[in-house]
């Protein structure tokens, strides 16, 4: 984590040295370097870390409640809803706060829609929920394509960046940290229950879990984490799906370990990916979602291959 943050502080279109960083922390100045650090690098690094961490715990939760290894934070159509919200805002010429709010509203609307459709007599079956999530996502996908094809090329550029995940405009504030702390503490408190729920809903109930309230808590938390992450950075793929799996593969199956590790690894992973995104073809920037996939895919395949038991 510390390494990834340092790496992120120092790398970018303009390389800073470690000594500048240390000097700046001890004695903040007004040089170009210190401005870059204070106003761009540090906020962006924190945004990357927070987003990655939120996506990773959200991924852990989704995989447990749906008990489906393919589950990721976006499986219930959250990213699609957020994307339609954000893209509409871009189309109307909005940016910054308005854009974020539009994405957030879109994300929550989509979650509500999925739960509303798959709800039958106050109960949800996992299959129905998954299928609804997939269908609703496909619907959003169509709307996204309509927006993309009908927009001016100028807008399309920023829309594509948003869709692939982009941290260049991202800022985090106290609310993000509060949410992340809540995720960490709540995740640890519920970690035993998550272990039990991983074995299935019947077994969990047989071992004393109040399924209804646990499931509701988890869905709400995961949706809120994902909506926040998507609002902050667009739909950054891969982190929420792969980080929990990587950790499980290397042995962190117990949620008492998996929860905090996901926060650290998810955060660090996205921080490093973002640093690379702005250095590889500097001064131009790549969307961070592209980089997460470029690093993530081979790493994941390597771990998957090397942990196959005979």
């Amino acid at each position: 984590m510390i390494f990834s943050m340092l790496f992120s502080f120092l790398s970018g279109s303009i390389d800073l040295t470690l000594s500048t960083l240390v000097t700046e922390f001890i004695n903040p100045g007004n040089s170009l370097e210190s401005q870059i650090l204070r106003e761009i690098r540090i906020p962006r690094t924190l945004a990357a870390f927070t987003t990655g961490a939120l996506l990773a715990i959200s991924g852990v939760i989704m995989q447990v409640i749906l008990r489906n290894p393919l589950a990721d934070p976006y499986i219930l159509g959250i990213s699609g809803g957020a994307a339609v919200g954000a893209l509409s805002a871009i189309l109307l010429g909005a940016s910054g706060i308005v854009l974020n709010n539009a994405a957030f509203v879109g994300a929550l609307f989509s979650v509500g829609l999925v739960f509303g459709i798959s709800n039958k007599y106050g109960r949800w079956s996992i299959t129905r929920l998954l299928l609804t999530g997939i269908v609703v996502s496909a619907g959003w996908g169509a709307v996204i394509n309509i927006l993309l094809t009908t927009s001016s090329s100028n807008n399309v550029q920023s829309m594509l960046f948003w869709l692939m995940g982009d941290l260049s405009q991202s800022r985090v504030h106290i609310g993000h940290y509060a949410l992340l702390s809540f995720g960490l503490i709540g995740g640890l408190l519920l970690s035993r229950s998550l272990n039990v729920l991983s074995r299935g809903e019947l077994i969990a109930q047989g071992l004393g879990i109040n399924l209804k309230s646990l499931r509701l808590t988890l869905y709400l938390a995961a949706s809120l984490f994902t909506a926040t992450a998507v609002t902050t950075a667009g739909s950054v793929g891969f982190v929420g799906l792969v980080i929990p799996h990587m950790l499980r593969l290397i042995g962190a199956r117990d949620h008492r370990v998996l929860m905090p590790c996901s926060i650290l690894l998810g955060g660090s992973f996205l921080t490093i990916a973002d640093s690379l995104a702005r250095t590889i073809i500097a001064p131009q920037q790549l969307p961070v979602g592209v980089v997460t996939a470029i690093i993530g895919v081979p790493t994941f395949i390597f771990i998957l291959r090397s942990t196959i038991t005979k």
Binding site: Q63, V64, R67, P69, N195, S198, R199, G200, L202, I203, G206, R248, R253, D254
Partner: peptide
């Protein structure tokens, strides 16, 4: 129960 242990990975002792 009759079935349903296999979901996310776990070891026997876990």
């Amino acid at each position: 129960f009759q079935d349903g242990l296999e979901t996310l990975p776990a070891t026997v002792i876990e």
